[in-house]
Design a protein around this nucleic acid. Structure first.
Lengths: 207, 207
DNA sequence: CGGGCCATCATACAAACGTATGAAGGAGAT
DNA sequence: ATCTCCTTCATACGTTTGTATGATGGCCCG
């Protein structure tokens, strides 16, 4: 019933569970498979977390914490809002690419019918807020066109998430291989250009 | 081993399975739950489809067919490319909203580690193609800015999919309730404006 | 040395899983 | 009426599931 992840075994369980949950989903990753991968005893999950469900919650929380700060960091600074937005988009892309488990676990929560974890809700709320604030700032200084900042933030955030998640079908279906750094750079650049174009104010041409 | 869905029982099985797979995932929807919901006998899945996995494949195919044509239809016509793109985006939003099972089943395929169904690959390929062709057309007549049409199509398509999928967390986390028609209309309009702005060519201002 | 305490271990349990089997039903053709 | 084919039915099988249990080992504190 100990909730800390300081122990070696508990940490190993969280890591193994993160990988297997991300790969096969909650139901698809059995307690036996997780404990085996962690090199632990079958009873280890019950002992350290109390239940499989509690382990899953611990995995979600352990993984969503870092995701929250990363984007906020990138959005800091004194640069013009559009530049900071670009940095945030690039940082989001990088994060999702480095830790492919994260978007998988997130989407699993969305496609499930069970209540969404507070940790996932928190990261979504936080990221939307950061982006919306940048947009508001740009609207005040005239560099970003009018529009509901929150809804515009949704348009922006959806692109890295979906494109990262669709890595496999994009490779199989449209031959876009995100493992190739050159291809990936083109992809990210294209999204950045799209976002900038979608936000930029054009004073002379009214709608 | 009969593969047709003409029979009442087989059709009922497909429908019940679609709902339960979408709700709880492949592993989470048991053969017993599906047959019970369909009002059929426990052995009905084995008899009509051969296995649970084959049922799942039948569900995917039965659901992806309509999705493919819908967007292509909306993209037809003699209107300017940007207008047809807007129609396609709206049609895609409508379709995903009417049949919420579809994006769930799609995303489940993406988050799983198993090979992605050819039907899902087909609809993605098809939709990207339709949008990319419209973009090319607009680039030729000067109404759409330069850029890789396929990658721009990704930016566009990601928005309806992600925003629709994130319905629950958006309601819980940011209080955007897509069940409310007014809110939903604002959301769709915002995306349409973002897409138009992201694509429109601006002759005088050279990046 | 001798208790506690915490972690790990092998094993057991009931429940749920997907599938297999053979009998029963029911409409149409001969 | 009998035969035939398709479908539905109850039931059983062997696995696999998540969790519970009690024994065993090692470390620290008295």
């Amino acid at each position: 019933m100990n909730n800390s992840a300081a122990t070696g075994t508990a940490a190993a369980l969280i890591q193994a569970a993160r990988e297997l949950f991300a790969l096969h989903g909650y139901d698809g990753a059995s307690v036996r498979a997780i404990t085996a991968r962690a090199g632990a005893n079958l009873g280890a999950i019950t002992y350290h977390f109390g239940s499989k469900e509690a382990l899953h919650e611990a995995v979600i929380e352990s993984v969503m914490g870092p995701a929250r700060q990363r984007l906020a960091r990138a959005a800091e600074g004194e640069d013009p809002p559009l530049d900071r937005l670009e940095a945030a988009v690039r940082a989001f892309f990088d994060f999702l690419h480095e830790k492919p488990d994260v978007p998988r676990l997130m989407l699993q929560q969305l496609t499930s019918s069970r209540p969404i974890s507070e940790a996932v809700l928190g990261i979504m709320r936080g990221n939307i807020r950061v982006v919306a604030l940048l947009i508001e700032e740009g609207q005040k200084d005239g560099s970003i066109r009018a529009g509901d900042p929150q809804l515009m933030a949704l348009s922006i955030g959806s692109q890295p998430i979906w494109i990262t998640m669709a890595r496999r079908p994009l490779e199989a279906g449209v031959a876009i291989d995100q493992e190739d750094p050159r291809t990936r750079a083109q992809l990210v650049d294209s999204v950045v250009r799209f976002v900038r174009a979608g936000l930029t104010a054009h004073p002379e041409s009214e709608r």
